[in-house]
Design a protein around this nucleic acid. Structure first.
Lengths: 147, 147
DNA sequence: GTCTCTGCAAAGTTTTTGCATGCAA
DNA sequence: TTGCATGCAAAAACTTTGCAGAGAC
């Protein structure tokens, strides 16, 4: 039966989890691999992927599929949503958004195509502070080109 | 300058768009390619990808990055959200959800990490009717194993 | 005739997997 | 000692791109 395997606490798994929890940047697997290599130079990308999958299935971390081409990972599994910068792809956190239902209970599935709803994710799109600054700076020079 | 090119109305582009609009299954590029080949046997997957990108940039169709590993596409660009089946990966539509804010206006960016918000997507997760049926059937035999 | 689009194929990117060995428990 | 996990590398899955010829306008 699935789920009855004995999980082992290897240094690789610990480093992957520790590094992910240290980062607030929602890194990709490859980015996390680079960080992990600083502590375990021989760790392989395959191992990083395998541990990320295990930790995701355990519910220890969260996988963000919705933020672009590659998956990103979040060591913070408390309730929150994400913003993705449409310019640079950075991902930030969104918490306690005013005006949003803290919990949505959907009992009428007739408008859900018969799906049984397990949960939802709110995914914002926007422009991060750094790209806003860059845009503001560019706007100062853009008027001449607009005509 | 970008955007000044004259778009041509090729049969390939028409077929890609027509097939996508016929389907409500939010197909992947490869799935759409299979459908398109029935009308244009020599169409290439690269052409399908290129046209999907063009149509997306034009705003004629919608690309769904948020529903799994591969991108899916939606020929219906009216306002609606999506449900993804966590079992089989199918994607359904969600419309006029009661209790949801039809439009969210977020002016206080302090809780958004300084991001300028452009929009949002609501992404549901659930179990589709087919997988529910399969689960119900399986539950009848699962009691013995639970103990 | 011009210039975008196409088919084909190669290559790029991201993720998974096979296998022999390593190591946590 | 047992068997899950690792490193390495090949492969799979998905998407993009270069190029010469085709075809829309």
């Amino acid at each position: 039966m699935a789920g009855t395997f004995q999980r082992r606490n290897t240094p690789q798994r610990k480093v992957v989890l520790d590094e992910l929890r240290k980062l607030t940047s929602h890194p990709t697997a490859v980015e996390l691999y680079e960080f992990a290599r600083r502590q375990l130079p021989k760790i392989s990308l395959g191992t990083v992927y395998r541990n990320l999958e295990i930790l995701t299935l355990e519910g220890t971390i969260r996988r963000l599929d919705s933020v672009g081409a590659e998956a990103r990972f979040d060591g913070d599994i408390t309730e929150h949503h994400h913003v993705r910068c449409v310019r640079c792809g950075a991902v930030g956190d969104v918490r306690g958004l005013p005006g949003l239902p803290g919990e949505m209970t959907v009992t009428d599935t007739s408008q859900l195509g018969g799906y049984e709803i397990l949960g939802y994710r709110l995914q914002f799109e926007g422009i991060c502070p750094l790209c806003r600054d860059a845009q503001d700076a560019a706007d100062g020079n853009a008027d001449a080109e607009a005509g």
